[in-house]
Each structure stands twice: as structure tokens, then as C-alpha cells.
């Protein structure tokens, strides 16, 4: 099967996935009564009298099929609904919050995957040696730390105790005023990238300073997973006959490990990286909330706790699309890592 056909097929597969996800979430939210769902629109108990009006105004008491049909019809016209929690259309909210999350992912994902692969390889190549023990300890520590706990501790230490050394948020107040002024052009709303494009070192440094804690929090917990998978996969590869052959041929150990063993050991890592990405989205929710790093995760959290159904649905659809696309990329990468793999045709 041609790569293009494969991609088209996978993208088309998105349609039933999205319908399924939206039906599932819509179905769950329908278990709440119209009154419960109307509660989103009031701030205070004193507004209780308005609930009947709100239910009528937003059609919350209509049958499931009609409400879902109305929502689906709007989605097909490009309208994902209105995010009450941030007072924006859902589509606008996604675009508004996406750059922050993207920026976090740009820094966290390579760190997690590359360092995970690097230390996993080192640990396997030096089995039962100091580096293996050290990475094992680090992995156990990292994997066993609850994300929210680690985030809070890092804030307490590096922001509270050391008086603003590594702050939360995305930018300091002065830099925030600067980037929103006429003197600065916001090309992407990814602060580090915009700072580079504006040739502004102060904004770049400030943005990086604000990224340290959330990136570390995300990386510590997720890197441990990749590291351990990589180590065990490498150990398996290193025990294979072709490695023995390579060594017998007198190849340099770095070539044996780096070229022959690691490349074959990457397949399981690639597989789990796709799932890790989904896990990372969950981690983003917690990390962004703790560090007030206002991205999609922060928005999702706010929407969920306030039962903002259009926002929750929007986030779920966004996550589903992302998950499917990431797995598609992973599948394509298989063919690059392992020449035996043929898309749609299994292993040669």
C-alpha cells in the first residue's frame, strides 16, 4: 500500500473515532439533569430562580438526539460551541490556548524521549554498573513521584523559598506588557519562538526561565518510563546473534550499540511514545494548572470542574485528533526505523 493511501485511510478513520468520542461524552453529560447542566450559567445560589429561563434559552431540556444533532450540525458548520468558562467560542479557545501547550510540548517531548533513549541505552550498555544503578534510582524516583506533588514542591522551593528564581506563568509582568505592546510582533504566540523572531533576548530568557519548572515536572515523571523501556529493549537487542556477529567482526562498541542494537531497540520505544503523548496530555492538565501555565490543559481542567460541556467536548475531540495523528506519525516512523515494516502489509 502506498504511503499516501495509508495516510488517507487513517485520516478517514478519524471520523468514526470523533463521532464515537463525542457520543460517549455527550452521553455521559446527559446523565446530568438539565438543572445540573444549567448550573454552569450561574455564579451564585441567588441566581437559582433564573435556571428555568436558562434551561429554556439553551435548550437543555430537549431530548438527547435533538441536543446531539444540534451540536453535531453546528460542528459540521465549523462551530464547536461556546466555552462558557473562558467566554470564547470553543474553536477560538483551542487556538488561544494551543500555543502555550505547544511550547511546553516542544521543550518537554524531545527532552523526555531523547534523554530517555540516551540514558536507557547507557544503562543497558553498562548493565549493573554505576550508571545503570543511578538511572534505575532516578527512574524509580521519577516514576513514583505524583506529578502534582512534584510540581507543588518545585514551586515551593524554586519560587517561594528562593524568592522568584524560577517563576510560574508564561512570562514575567514586564515581559508580558512588552510582548503585548506595539514594539513586539506576536507571530505564533509561542513566546520563545516569537522572541527569536523579534530578536529579543530578554523575552527569550524570561520565557525559558518560566518553562524550566513545568518542563522538569513533566520530564522527570515521563522520562523514567521511556528510560526503563529503552533499557530492557536494548538488553534484549544486545543479546541477539547479530550483535555477537558484529562484535566478532571487530566493530567498534559504539557502532555496535549505537547503530545495530539501538536502532532495533527503538521500536518498542516508538510504540510507547505514542501512548506517552496521550499520557502527556493528562500531565499537561495538572502541570499547567499548578504552574498557572495557561494552555489547553489548564482550560480543560477549568472546563471539567465547571461542567462546561462544549469545552469538554472540544478538548476531547482535539485530544482524539491529536492522538490519532501522533499514532499515524509513529506508524510512519516504524518504516524508517525498521525496513522490514510495510504499512498496511505487516512485517516483510
Amino acid at each position: 500500500m502506498q504511503l499516501r493511501t495509508y495516510i488517507i485511510r487513517r485520516v478517514l478513520l478519524l471520523i468514526p473515532v470523533l463521532v464515537g468520542v463525542s457520543l460517549f461524552i455527550f452521553g455521559i453529560t446527559m446523565s446530568f439533569s438539565p438543572t445540573q447542566r444549567a448550573m454552569l450559567y450561574i455564579q451564585d445560589a441567588k441566581q437559582m430562580d433564573a435556571l428555568d429561563t436558562i434551561i429554556r434559552q439553551y435548550g437543555l431540556d430537549r431530548p438527547f438526539v435533538i441536543q446531539y444533532g444540534t451540536w453535531l450540525g453546528q460542528v459540521l458548520r465549523g462551530n464547536l460551541g461556546y466555552s462558557k468558562i473562558v467566554s470564547k467560542p470553543v474553536w477560538n479557545a483551542i487556538w488561544y490556548f494551543l500555543p502555550a501547550t505547544l511550547e511546553l510540548a516542544i521543550f518537554a517531548c524531545p527532552l523526555i524521549i531523547l534523554l530517555g533513549i540516551f540514558f536507557g541505552t547507557k544503562a543497558a550498555a553498562h548493565k549493573d554498573k554505576p550508571i545503570d544503578h543511578a538511572t534505575r534510582v532516578a527512574a524509580i524516583l521519577g516514576w513514583s513521584l505524583p506529578l502534582f506533588w512534584l510540581g507543588l514542591i518545585l514551586i515551593m522551593v524554586f519560587y517561594g523559598f528562593f524568592r522568584g528564581l524560577l517563576p510560574p506563568d508564561r512570562l514575567s509582568l514586564q515581559m508580558d506588557l512588552l510582548v503585548n505592546s506595539a514594539a513586539f510582533t506576536r507571530y505564533t504566540h509561542i513566546n520563545t519562538l516569537d522572541a527569536i523572531l523579534n530578536l529579543n533576548g530578554a523575552v527569550l530568557l524570561d520565557a525559558l526561565r518560566h518553562l524550566v519548572l513545568p518542563v522538569v515536572t513533566l520530564s522527570v515523571t515521563h522520562m523514567a518510563f521511556i528510560m526503563r523501556i529503552m533499557r530492557s529493549s536494548m538488553l534484549e537487542s544486545l543479546g541477539k546473534g547479530y550483535i555477537l556477529t558484529a562484535r566478532a567482526k571487530g566493530l567498534d562498541e559504539r557502532v555496535v550499540v549505537g547503530k545495530h542494537a539501538r536502532r532495533n531497540a527503538l521500536i518498542p520505544v516508538l510504540t510507547v511514545s505514542g501512548y506517552l503523548f496521550a499520557g502527556l496530555a493528562g500531565g499537561m492538565v495538572i502541570t499547567e494548572t499548578i504552574f498557572n501555565y495557561t494552555g489547553i490543559g489548564w482550560w480543560a481542567w477549568m472546563s471539567a470542574v465547571n461542567l462546561d460541556i462544549p469545552s469538554v467536548l472540544g478538548f476531547a475531540l482535539f485530544s482524539a485528533v491529536l492522538f490519532v495523528l501522533v499514532n499515524l506519525v509513529v506508524d510512519i516512523l516504524y518504516t524508517r526505523v525498521d525496513p522490514r515494516v510495510r504499512l498496511g502489509g505487516g512485517v516483510q
Partner: peptide, 9 residues
């Protein structure tokens, strides 16, 4: 929303 973050600020 997080108290620890507000306190640290």
C-alpha cells in the same frame, strides 16, 4: 487557582 502558587507569588 492553586493556593501554593499564589502564596509563592
Amino acid at each position: 487557582t492553586e493556593w501554593t502558587t499564589r502564596k509563592a507569588a
